[in-house]
């Protein structure tokens, strides 16, 4: 407990936390606005009285294609499904950048010790290094959860106002929506842990920050595009499903009520994979720190 208090003080007594806080809040506000606009469109479409019109004969659709088109149409006009999908998106707004900032916070919590040579003071005060790393893991996920509470408060208020203006309930009581919000919190906590683990692996602060940011921002697209191309090439979609092992894809899968690609991995696969990453990186980080000479 003393150690977590000490680590929280480390975060609080420098500028990083509020700079990151502002960053996360701005991105959350932007993305909540976008998702509300998108959700508005989807809900309007779904609640219109349109009926399925078979396409004109010149499209020459097979009966299977016709059935598939009708199924898609019905999905888009299933109002309760559209509502909960939109609600999950809105209430987890800002996740993409939020997770990046939270993992960077974890990275900095470790690399600062080397960058500013405070590792000496830290390990002199607490020579039991495992405890120090555990405190950092706990502190990073705690700070991450605070970010989650903040972003969820913004999107929760904005979203509730939006839904009531459309004449619907806030949707927060719907299990898929509640689940998405909770899973979002789990994702925040786990990304804080991933950050600490990566910070131990890459001691150089600038190197670690660049690696995490690039791996997160570019890596996500590279992995998704590669998985898509591979699935086209091999004519099977398990390759595409496998892209969920990449942590940022896993966290997207966790919060979606919808498939993020065809035949989706269920949300709990995403959660398990991310927990696995957190455990592996947290463990590796602890073992390395126990052995490392502080010079």
């Amino acid at each position: 407990m003393n150690l977590i208090r000490s680590e929280l003080m480390k975060i609080r007594t420098t500028n990083v936390w509020w700079l990151f806080g502002i960053g996360v809040l701005v991105f959350t506000a932007l993305s909540v606005t976008l998702w509300i606009f998108a959700g508005n469109q989807l809900i309007d479409d779904a609640s219109s009285n349109a009926v399925f019109q078979p396409p004109p004969p010149e499209f020459e659709m097979s009966p299977e294609q016709l059935a598939e088109a009708q199924r898609q149409f019905e999905l888009q006009h299933d109002i309760s499904r559209v509502l909960s999908g939109a609600a999950a998106q809105i209430y987890t707004s800002g996740q993409f950048f939020g997770l990046l900032f939270v993992s960077l916070l974890g990275v900095i919590l470790v690399t600062n010790e080397y960058y500013h040579q405070t590792a000496t003071a830290t390990f002199l005060t607490t020579p039991q290094r495992t405890k120090v790393i555990l405190a950092k893991l706990g502190t990073a996920s705690l700070a991450a959860l605070i970010f989650w509470v903040g972003t969820t408060a913004i999107s929760g208020i904005a979203g509730s106002i939006f839904f009531s203006s459309k004449g619907y309930s806030s949707q927060l009581g719907e299990w898929p929506v509640t689940r998405a919000v909770l899973m979002n919190g789990l994702a925040y906590g786990l990304w804080g842990i991933l950050g600490v683990g990566l910070g131990v692996l890459i001691r150089n602060q600038i190197g670690a920050v660049i690696t995490v940011a690039a791996g997160y921002l570019l890596g996500t697209y590279v992995v998704q595009i590669a998985a898509f191309l591979a699935s086209q090439l091999f004519k099977s979609d398990w390759v595409q499903k496998a892209s969920v092992i990449w942590p940022s894809v896993a966290s997207e899968a966790m919060v979606s009520t919808e498939p993020i690609f065809s035949n989706p991995p269920p949300w709990w696969v995403g959660a398990l994979i991310l927990i696995g990453w957190g455990l592996v990186l947290g463990l590796v980080g602890t073992l390395i720190t126990r052995k490392r000479d502080i010079a």
């Binding site: 003080m9 007594t13 600062n112 500013h116 040579q117 405070t118 003071a121």
Partner: peptide, 14 residues
């Protein structure tokens, strides 16, 4: 051996 953006007092309090 202290964080450059932190006050001396906070360094000791940590």
């Amino acid at each position: 051996a202290a964080h450059k953006g932190r006050t001396g007092r906070n360094h000791l309090r940590i």
